Amino acid sequence: MRIKTSDGLGLHVEEAGSGLPILFIHEFGGNHESWEPQMRFFARRYRCISYAARGYPPSDVPAGIDAYSQRIAVDDALSVLDALGIGKAHVVGLSMGGFATVHFGLAAPERALSLTVAGAGYGCEKEFEDYFRTVSLEVADNFETKGAREFSKIYALGASRVQFQNKDPRGWREFADRLATHSDLGAAMTMRGVQARRPSFYDLEDGLKAMDVPTLVIVGDEDDHCLQPGIFLKKTIPACGLSVFPKTGHTLNLEEPDRFNGLLAEFFAEVEAGKWLKRDPRALPGQIMRTT
């Protein structure tokens, strides 16, 4: 299926199943096919939607950097829901998609049944913020000059990707092969326009404190630059839970699909039952033991 964005671009959308909707938003290193383990599992009970972000074929690949931004990524997610006639959905994002999910909750909380923010945090830590922006531009240059087919051989072996390779060589190979098919231009522009320009979670604190959407944050314990941002989200968003997967890297939904799917299923059930609540005000973060 093909839908139009608010600025007239075409996005490739796939869906399966019926019931309450789940919108899956993929990471930079993936595409709409990266959610296949979740589409197959949740389509038994839900209406599951995944889409290829702008810059990712078979969606359109605009050439100008002004066509890419964090806000535009949110607008595209809303365009998908609008085109499908969906008022509210569970929104699930990984990494780049996790950032889009957070911003979705800030921009359009009334459209979200819940938010799942997985493997998100790169560039948020203030001590690494400048480095992240610099290395993002280097990655963009590499995709543009070497091409995805060659540079994917380097990118797919990042420090938080090798866990996936060690656990599931066939699954990792499928991930790496998909990465090699990325648009050279689309990958470069996404890195420059979205990744290198997006704000840190720490700069969004006031908005996050006011965001009442039920939220689940998931990080791998070997995805080092997502750990502290994940804890920050847990402490800041009122109705937020945090899950840390042991001995796990960045590509959570593919590296640990059974654990990921089971956790999401329980989260969705609690949200739909009205049981995923804000933190009890008696659970004072500064208290160690009560004495009076």
Rank of each mutant, 00 (worst) to 15 (best):
A148D: 01
R149V: 09
E150M: 08
E150R: 12
S152M: 00
S152D: 03
I154W: 08
Y155G: 04
L157S: 11
L157K: 11
A159S: 14
A159Q: 10
R161E: 13
R161C: 13
Q163R: 08
Q165R: 15
N166G: 11
D168F: 06
P169L: 04
W172M: 09
R173L: 15
R173S: 13
E174C: 12
A176I: 00
D177K: 11
R178H: 10
R178M: 12
A180G: 06
A180T: 06
A180V: 05
T181I: 11
D184L: 06
D184P: 06
L185E: 01
A188Y: 01
M189P: 07
M191L: 14
R192P: 07
R192H: 02
V194E: 04
V194F: 13
V194R: 00
Q195F: 10
A196M: 09
R197Q: 15
R197H: 09
R197C: 11
R197L: 13
R198I: 07
R198W: 10
R198N: 07
P199E: 00
F201E: 01
F201Q: 03
G207C: 04
D212P: 06
V213S: 04
V213I: 02
V213N: 04
P214G: 04
P214I: 03
L216I: 03
L216S: 02
V219S: 08
G220A: 07
D221V: 02
D221Q: 01
D223F: 03
Q228M: 09
P229K: 02
P229D: 00
G230M: 03
G230W: 01
G230S: 03
I237N: 03
I237P: 01
P238Y: 04
P238G: 08
A239R: 11
A239W: 05
G241M: 02
V244D: 07
V244C: 12
K247P: 09
T248E: 05
H250T: 10
T251F: 14
N253H: 15
E255S: 13
D258H: 14
D258C: 13
G262Y: 12
L264Y: 05
A265P: 08
F268P: 07
A269K: 14
